[in-house]
Amino acid sequence: MSQIPVELVKLIIALVAIAAFVGLNGLVLVYLERKVAGFVQRRPGPYEVGPQGLLQPLADAVKLIGKQLFTPSGADKLLFWMAPILSFLPVLLLFLPIPFGPVATGMEMDLGLLLILAFAGLNVLALCLAGWGSNNKWGILGAARAVAQSVAYEIPLLLSVLAVAFMTGSLNLTTVVEGQGGWPWQWNAVVQPLAFIIYFVSALGETNRAPFDLPEAESELTAGFHTEYSGMGFGLFFLAEYANMIVVCSVAAALFLGGWQGPFFDGAWWFLVKVYILLLVMIWLRWTYPRVRFDQLLNINWKWLMPLALLNLFITAFVMKL
């Protein structure tokens, strides 16, 4: 009997660990989201189920699992159920090249950043299929918004990432992290502050987070692309959104904030601290700023982020050439 390749075993273990990490973080982020919302709006948030409401996310998960799944009349059944699966499954691949620590990387690859950017684009296809396959006018409007928003905000996000890649000469996230230091003044965010700001704002647009949550604007489109979904159909979209938030914050921590390196005792804890600080900022922004109009959303990108990202990239290329 031939032996199983070691790399295949490592890959399977990494995927299982990533799936557990995504599920656990989904519960943690739901709790954080509600508690931050309660704090911002001067109310307690969940506190009945478990001590200080700690078991509320678990109760929500059980409720979603137990809900009946149904296909709306007139919907395309194949597209309708393919959409939530397509939204969630690529997320597991996005975590593979992310270096959580000096040796805590799912799969070391030279083009890891390119893999993340390529597979992250599948999410918008899932949203498009969800809206189109639902045979619902609000779903189709949400899908159209998702496509326009994703196509627009991918460009400045890519340009801001390229600026850092030009500096480090690599698309390997581990190499980018090792090129920085543990102290804040050694981070790429200090050398490339404009790229960091553009990346973070574009990440909000890419993950459909408020104030850029136009594809699912409740006050306008009921729930947008996932209006017709219940139970775990909705749950997979919900989990994929939080997983994508973790991905964009993890990439930001690696590219701009020194990754696992800290002032002392380098390790994965520094990486997770930086990621969760960025996640808290994303949650805080959601409950602080009102939703923008769709024309304002696109104007922010095409009139501000795009020109600034191009200018920053040209300046970076010029300085590196010198």
Rank of each mutant, 00 (worst) to 15 (best):
A240T: 07
I300F: 12
L171W: 14
N244E: 09
A217K: 09
K321E: 11
Y31P: 01
K321A: 13
N136H: 13
L285N: 06
G53H: 00
S2Y: 08
A317V: 10
V319D: 11
L78N: 10
T168S: 07
M167D: 02
D110G: 14
W302A: 13
L322Q: 13
L257E: 03
V49E: 12
I13G: 05
N172V: 00
L58C: 05
L55S: 04
P97K: 10
G26Q: 05
M82V: 14
G74L: 08
V248T: 09
L122F: 15
V319H: 04
L129Y: 14
N136S: 07
D110I: 09
Q3M: 06
P156R: 09
F212G: 02
G74S: 11
V36K: 10
V28F: 12
L54Y: 10
G205Q: 10
F318P: 05
V40D: 10
V151L: 10
I65G: 03
S87Q: 05
G26E: 03
V275M: 11
V281K: 02
V9P: 04
G38C: 02
R43T: 00
R43K: 09
V191L: 13
L11M: 12
M1H: 05
S134E: 07
Y47T: 14
L214D: 00
D295H: 13
A75D: 13
P263T: 00
S202Q: 05
I65Q: 04
D110A: 15
F271K: 02
A165Q: 01
V16Q: 01
G66Y: 05
L11Y: 09
M107E: 11
L285Y: 13
V176P: 09
T175K: 14
M320E: 14
A165C: 00
I315A: 12
K321P: 06
G38R: 06
V275P: 06
Q149E: 07
L162Y: 05
A210S: 15
A268S: 13
W81I: 06
L114M: 14
E178L: 15
P193G: 01
W269C: 00
G121K: 04
T105E: 13
Q186N: 06
V103F: 15
F80T: 09
V191I: 02
I198T: 12
E33K: 06
M282S: 06
D76C: 07
L69K: 08
E218N: 10
N301V: 15
I155H: 01
N208K: 12
L24N: 07
A126I: 08
G179H: 08
E154T: 15
A152M: 14
F80I: 08
F100P: 08
T207C: 04
E178N: 14
P184I: 03
A163D: 08
P156S: 08
F88Q: 08
G224Y: 09
G121H: 05
L78G: 11
W183K: 08
M167N: 04
V164N: 04
E228W: 14
A189P: 00
N136A: 14
A19K: 00
L11K: 07
L194A: 13
F166T: 10
L173W: 02
F294C: 00
V190L: 09
W304M: 15
Y31D: 03
D76F: 07
